Simulated assay, not measured.
Amino acid sequence: MTSDNRLDLEFAYTSHDDSCKDLYSPYYYCRRPRGHDGVHAAGFGSSRLRWDHRADHPPRMLS
């Protein structure tokens, strides 16, 4: 599992254009860098979500 500290750094240094954008919901998409290993993640603190890729949500649905 990816630590919260590592995710904070990834989010801080990954531009919107370079982020994964795997869709969790209309309001949450993966903020990790494109091509990352492991789970997708979005949000901060107690609102942070982590999820595995879902087959019904193709990557890069948001552009």
Rank of each mutant, 00 (worst) to 15 (best):
S46P: 06
H16Q: 07
H40Q: 02
D22P: 01
T2V: 13
R31H: 12
R34W: 11
H53R: 01
M1I: 12
L9H: 05
H40M: 03
M1Q: 11
G35D: 02
P33V: 02
H16L: 11
L49I: 10
R48Y: 14
L7M: 07
S19C: 07
H40R: 01
L49D: 03
D18C: 12
D37P: 00
R50N: 13
R60E: 13
Y29H: 08
T14V: 15
V39W: 08
L9R: 03
L62R: 06
S47K: 02
G45T: 00
L23E: 03
S19M: 08
R48Q: 13
R34V: 15
H36S: 04
P26G: 05
P59F: 08
D4S: 06
R6D: 05
D52P: 05
R31W: 12
E10M: 15
T14R: 13
S25V: 11
D56T: 01
C30E: 01
D52Y: 05
F44W: 06
V39H: 08
S3N: 07
D8V: 00
H57A: 08
T14F: 15
S47V: 06
L7H: 07
R34S: 10
F11W: 13
P26I: 03
S25C: 10
A42D: 15
R60C: 14
L23C: 05
L9G: 09
P33W: 04
G35T: 00
A42V: 14
G45S: 00
R48P: 15
P26W: 05
S46K: 00
S15W: 09
H53I: 04
P58M: 10
S63C: 13
R6S: 07
H16R: 02
M1V: 14
L23Q: 04
Y24H: 09
S46V: 05
P33S: 10
P26D: 12
L49H: 09
D22H: 07
S25N: 12
K21Y: 10
L9W: 07
D17N: 08
Y24F: 11
A55F: 03
Y29K: 05
C30N: 00
Y27I: 08
D56F: 01
A55E: 11
S46Y: 07
D17F: 08
C20M: 06
Y27L: 09
P33T: 11
D8C: 03
R31T: 15
C30A: 02
Y28M: 11
R54Q: 01
D56E: 03
R34I: 15
H36M: 02
R6I: 10
H16E: 12
P26H: 04
R50Q: 11
D17K: 02
F11M: 14
P26M: 04
Y28I: 13
W51P: 10
D8F: 02
S3D: 08
T2Q: 07
L23M: 05
T14A: 10
P58F: 14
G38L: 02
P33H: 08
R6H: 07
D22M: 08
W51H: 04
S47R: 02
M61E: 06
F11H: 13
A12D: 11
H36Y: 08
P58R: 05
T14S: 13
Y27M: 05
H53C: 05
L49Y: 12
P58S: 13
F44D: 15
D22G: 09
F44I: 09
Y27P: 00
D37K: 15
Y27F: 05
R50G: 13
G45N: 02
E10P: 15
C30R: 01
A41K: 11
G45F: 00
